[in-house]
């Protein structure tokens, strides 16, 4: 996938009478991280779900997501290729570590040997050489998180969406893992949108930070 910028144009998301996000526009250059900060409930996760094309029907949204010149909002979720990482690693529990990674590899890569090599290469990079046949449930939290990152990267995404992916890790692991993620997304020249309420994340991302206001919500405390 050629590096290109990820762009949001005039994105508005509403839930019933509440406007969660009003006319948000931004551009994320390849290899850069833009951080969206805000209290829980302001629609950060809804925004990411909308970008992926998996937003629940109860919400209404308008606006466009562009990758370079491609309008992603017109595509079905599986063709948008926006890699997403959640708080939980969400490794598929019924597949081995290697199978989890192979699930993400594009089908266009046909040769079994090459697929195997790619998977093993990804594991080497994550410091998990030889873990392909392991049960994900036997890995530590930090190891699982790294596998989840490698899985997203193997799917060759156009951009990366991070939905508070560091918040469930303990302090020491969190710092190392954050560095791991940022190193990889810069190397792959991926435009990245990070959603968080932890100022430390924003600091570490070393990019533009946007504060999402609690707009249009009638029941603000």
């Amino acid at each position: 996938m050629n590096p290109a910028a990820l762009e949001l144009q005039q994105v508005t998301i509403e839930l019933g009478a509440r406007t969660l996000i009003a006319g948000l526009s931004l551009i994320v250059e390849p290899g850069q991280v833009v951080t969206l900060m805000g209290e829980s409930g302001v629609g950060k996760s809804s925004l990411l779900a909308w970008m992926c094309g998996t937003m629940p029907e109860a919400f209404r949204a308008s606006g466009r997501v562009l990758h370079g010149a491609t309008d992603l909002s017109l595509l079905p979720p599986e063709d948008r290729r926006l890699g997403i990482l959640f708080q939980d690693d969400l490794l598929f529990p019924h597949l081995s570590v290697g199978q989890n990674l192979a699930f993400a590899l594009p089908a266009a890569l046909r040769s079994r040997a090459e697929r195997r090599t790619k998977v093993e290469g990804a594991l080497d990079e994550a410091g998990l050489s030889g873990y392909a046949d392991r049960d994900p449930a036997t890995l530590s939290g930090g190891q699982r998180a790294r596998v989840a990152v490698m899985r997203v990267l193997l799917s060759e995404p156009r951009a990366l969406l991070l939905d508070e992916p560091f918040s469930k890790l303990d302090h020491a692991t969190r710092q190392r893992f954050r560095q791991f993620v940022f190193d990889h997304l810069r190397e792959a020249r991926l435009p990245t949108l990070l959603v968080t309420h932890d100022p430390e994340d924003a600091l570490a991302a070393a990019g533009m930070t946007l504060e999402l206001p609690s707009v249009g919500s009638p029941q603000v405390h």
Binding site: A49, C52, G53, T54, P77, E78, D79, R80, R81, L82, G83, I84, F86, D88, L90, F92, F103, A104, P106, R151, V152, S155, E156, P157, L161
Partner: peptide
Amino acid sequence: RYRRTGLCLG
């Protein structure tokens, strides 16, 4: 979220 993860992986 497993479904979303799968879809986003293509």
